[in-house]
């Protein structure tokens, strides 16, 4: 049982290291496959960070 727990801990640690290395080396699809002019990101777009229609992100929805 000790070996199995050790293997689980090692798997989680190695997976964490893989997650970090992949995040450093990979670009999100919206960056890799589009020009800056075409990018629509949740933090900087026409519909706001909450996708609510408010570019400032103040409200939960578009209030017209």
């Amino acid at each position: 049982m000790k070996t199995i727990i050790l293997a689980i801990v090692a798997a989680v640690l190695l997976a964490g290291a893989a997650a970090y290395l992949l995040s450093v080396n990979q670009k999100p699809a919206y960056q890799a496959f589009s020009t800056t002019g075409a990018r629509v990101t949740p933090t900087d777009n026409l519909v706001g960070p909450n996708w609510s229609g408010d570019p400032q992100g103040r409200g939960a929805g578009h209030r017209g």
């Binding site: 090692a10 798997a11 190695l14 997976a15 964490g16 290291a17 893989a18 997650a19 992949l22």
Partner: peptide
């Protein structure tokens, strides 16, 4: 996430 990241210790 689990599939993409645990693939690496599996390969090791």
């Amino acid at each position: 996430y689990a599939h993409n990241y645990l693939a690496w210790p599996f390969m090791l």
